[in-house]
Design a binder for these strands. Structure first.
Lengths: 114, 114
DNA sequence: TCATTCTGCTTGGTATAGCAAGCGTTGCTA
DNA sequence: TAGCAACGCTTGCTATACCAAGCAGAATGA
């Protein structure tokens, strides 16, 4: 399948990559395992920024990346959107660089099979 | 210095400072005047980041400030430090590069979509 | 076989974000 | 005075984020 994925997909893979169970994440973050299950299975569309922040810390991934996947506007996104009209990749913004680094880390952890 | 101003208080002042009525903001942002009234009177605790972003643009105020007033975590230096740790990544394989390019296009298409 | 203990998942419920409709007040014009 | 329009606000409703409780299957051991 494509490398593109939903927030739920990403969170599920990040959790297993971190070697944690739903209940382990629940005791670590205070987010119920019921809700985490719904989140990973795409039944929740817009989790709160607070919960995204807790999960970012728990999985050691970028909070900004989770915000991006959730469809939330990032600070300065609108400013940079007008600045970057390039059709091809071009130079990266800080946000994009951070997101790509985290995503690459994720890809490689999955290749290692952990 | 005083405590943080409430979100509703700030939004009300920003709107009158911009010389706009509730219905003017409604027609500009698509957010109902009923909801805007509740927001300004403190009856809404956690508006969506999307709506905060629209109001930031409408009032020409900082989106980050609204996020902070709403009590949402902001992407901060420690997030970027985590990303930078993961940035010791070495050269990319072709597969990794393809995945990152695809993912970057995904990110940017979502930014344009908002 | 039976009990225990993990795992993810489902169900039923509550709280609240957000909107459509409409209210009371103010101010303007005839 | 009546009539109208615009203002902020309230009410009643729907959709959904989130949780407590518990279910179903797999693994493990007595």
């Amino acid at each position: 399948m494509s490398a593109l994925q939903s927030l739920g997909e990403f969170l599920g893979k990040a959790r297993t990559a971190a070697g944690k169970t739903l209940r382990a994440v629940e005791s670590e973050t205070g987010i119920s395992n019921a809700y985490l299950s719904q989140l990973e299975n795409g039944k929740i569309k817009s989790p709160s920024p607070q919960n995204l922040h807790k999960l970012a810390l728990c999985y050691s991934v970028s909070y900004e990346l989770l915000m991006e996947l959730a469809g939330f506007p990032l600070p300065n996104a609108s400013d940079r959107a007008t600045a970057n009209k390039a059709a091809r990749i071009g130079p990266l913004t800080d946000d994009e660089e951070a997101a790509l680094v985290e995503y690459l880390q994720f890809i490689r952890s999955r290749k290692r099979g952990d």
